[in-house]
Design a protein around this nucleic acid. Structure first.
Lengths: 192, 192
DNA sequence: GACAAGATATAACAGCTGTGATATCTTGCG
DNA sequence: CGCAAGATATCACAGCTGTTATATCTTGTC
């Protein structure tokens, strides 16, 4: 037959290259040629695995979100309060990997407003994270909680994490990892 | 002499056009030609008022931040707790104007990582807002507070507002103005 | 009304962009 | 080996980009 490469893995490889370029030079700097060069191929190869530039970017965002979600790693051994703290801590840009994901997320945030497909991807990732937190909150509540209260609390926590991450991206010097965790704990309140 | 236009006002006009284009099509869609067309001029005019595209974008961001800061409007008549709530509410994307500012801010967020000049602008705006909140917090504290505590609390509040704003941008349908204010109040805690 | 200076428009430039057509190369199967 | 199919590379295309040089227009001053 032919050469037989693992198509899905090559797509992931190319998406990783795209993410790297985006983190370094922004979405604007991510042309097909720069992404191909980063991956060590040419634009012809890119065209072979993605019909469009849109598809490449959408796949890159999906992959980045999916990887962050996978990294969440369900810790069944933790009590709910600790599991919540672990989930939120894990969402912060504490290491290179986390910073890469956040840079990509923010980079896409502006593009999403112009491209409905990307907006849906982002939105669904948010909703999924929210329901994950709601589950942890209702499981671990000392007092029976209404669903509405849990939802409001989950949104508050997500907002907290996002806000810390955003400030950390703008002003990395004053937001080392330790400071981010401090700020998260300060906001966890009774959950701490 | 010559025609004598108000140079600073024309620059503001052009920056407003740039902001409008950015909000509609993202930073990537903001070329000199599209911005000029939005403002009703040609690229030659743009070149007359800005030496660079960089300068145009930096000025656009500065103007957007400055306008949001101006809108904060110091309300001397409010007690500190209410002044804090007013400042934070005002920072949310509750109306078209607020959404425009946020869209521009987020759009620049990714570009800032690649352009140091923009990063400084964003960072300083953050720091200024933070010290504004710290002042309100120390003024209105029922019990004497340390400066460190006030800083941590201010950062928590900014993170909360930013996070709500970000979610509202990604998922506008489930984040109408009323819901944003609810989420803010839920996070204000004892300050409410 | 003439002049000058600034405001605006036009046009050209090299470079980059996404896309698609076409070629070459690689590899597995018969 | 020989062939076929898929992987990769090359190239050309039209369109857009930022920048700059140059032209035309407008208006205030003398």
């Amino acid at each position: 037959m032919s050469k037989m490469v693992d198509v899905e893995q090559r797509r992931l490889e190319l998406a990783a290259a795209a993410a790297a370029v985006i983190a370094r030079r922004g979405v604007a700097g991510a042309s097909l040629r720069t992404v191909a060069a980063e991956a060590g191929w040419t634009t012809g190869t890119l065209a072979h695995y993605f019909t469009d530039k849109r598809e490449l970017l959408a796949f890159t965002l999906e992959t980045s979100l999916e990887q962050r979600r996978a990294r969440r790693g369900e810790r069944q051994d933790l009590i709910p309060a600790d599991a919540i703290r672990a989930s939120l801590t894990n969402a912060l840009p504490l290491d290179d990997d986390g910073r890469l994901h956040w840079t990509v997320t923010v980079a896409f945030a502006s593009h999403a407003s112009a491209e409905p497909e990307l907006q849906l991807v982002q939105r669904d990732a948010y909703r999924e994270f929210r329901s994950h937190l709601v589950n942890l909150l209702t499981d671990g509540a000392p007092v029976p909680t209404t669903l509405d209260d849990a939802v409001v609390e989950a949104e508050r926590l997500i907002a907290l994490v996002d806000g810390i991450a955003l400030q950390a991206l703008f002003d990395p010097e004053t937001w080392p990892p330790g400071r981010q965790v401090e700020a998260l704990d300060a906001g966890l309140g009774a959950l701490r």
